[in-house]
Structure formats: structure tokens, C-alpha cells
Amino acid sequence: MEFGILSPARVAAWIAPTGHKSLGFSLTRELWGPTPAQMRCERDLSAR
């Protein structure tokens, strides 16, 4: 796999913080902002 998440331990190490930060995978975007830093991170990439 592309990112080396192959073992059960690595899967758990990815799922745990991701699930926590997304409130149980119920959010798809960060809740902070909109600050200038957030606007830079969430800029419209389709304009390329």
C-alpha cells in the first residue's frame, strides 16, 4: 500500500486519532476558523 498502513497495529494507530479528531468520523472538515491559516489550507484546488 502507498502509505505503509499494512499491519493491524498501524491500522489502529491511524484509525484512533483520525476517529477522535473527526468526532467518530462524523466530520469531514476542521472546525477551527475561518482564520487566514485555515483559508490557506482549504483553498480551492480545482482552480489549478
Rank of each mutant, 00 (worst) to 15 (best):
L6Y: 09
P8W: 02
E2Q: 14
M39Q: 05
S46C: 08
P17N: 15
F25S: 01
P34D: 11
A12Q: 08
S46D: 10
T35V: 09
A9G: 09
A47T: 13
S26M: 05
S26K: 12
L6G: 11
L27N: 09
T18Q: 01
S26E: 08
T18C: 00
A37L: 15
F25Q: 03
R10C: 03
P36E: 15
R29D: 06
R43W: 04
A12I: 03
L45N: 02
W32D: 13
F3T: 04
W32K: 10
A12D: 07
S7W: 02
M1G: 09
V11E: 04
F25I: 00
T18N: 02
S22A: 11
G4C: 08
H20E: 08
C41T: 12
H20N: 14
I5W: 05
A37C: 14
Q38T: 07
W32Y: 09
I15Q: 02
A37E: 15
L31I: 10
W32M: 13
H20M: 12
P36G: 14
P8A: 04
E2S: 13
H20R: 13
G33H: 04
R29T: 15
A12C: 05
R29P: 09
S7H: 06
H20F: 14
E2I: 15
L23C: 08
R48D: 06
A16N: 11
F25A: 02
E30L: 07
G33D: 10
P36N: 15
A12V: 03
M39A: 09
R40G: 11
P17S: 14
P36I: 12
P34Q: 12
F3P: 00
R40K: 14
D44P: 01
A12F: 02
E2M: 07
G33T: 05
A47H: 10
I15Y: 04
P8V: 01
K21C: 08
W32H: 09
P17Q: 12
A9W: 01
P8K: 01
E30Q: 13
A12S: 07
P36M: 13
G19M: 11
A9E: 12
L27H: 12
S22T: 11
W14N: 01
Q38F: 10
R43C: 05
F25G: 00
M1N: 10
T18H: 01
M39T: 10
A13S: 09
A47C: 14
L45G: 01
F3R: 05
P36D: 13
G19E: 08
A13L: 00
I15C: 02
L31R: 10
A16Y: 04
L23T: 07
P34N: 09
A12Y: 02
W14C: 02
F25V: 00
L45R: 02
A47D: 10
L27E: 08
A47G: 04
R29I: 15
P17D: 06
D44R: 05
A9L: 03
E42M: 05
L45E: 04
R48V: 11
L23Q: 09
V11N: 01
F3A: 11
G33N: 08
L23N: 10
R40Y: 14
R29Y: 13
I15H: 02
E30T: 12
C41A: 15
D44N: 06
I15K: 05
P36Q: 14
T28W: 08
L45Y: 04
H20G: 09
D44Q: 04
R29V: 14
R43F: 07
Q38E: 07
E42A: 07
A37M: 13
P36C: 15
E30N: 14
S26V: 06
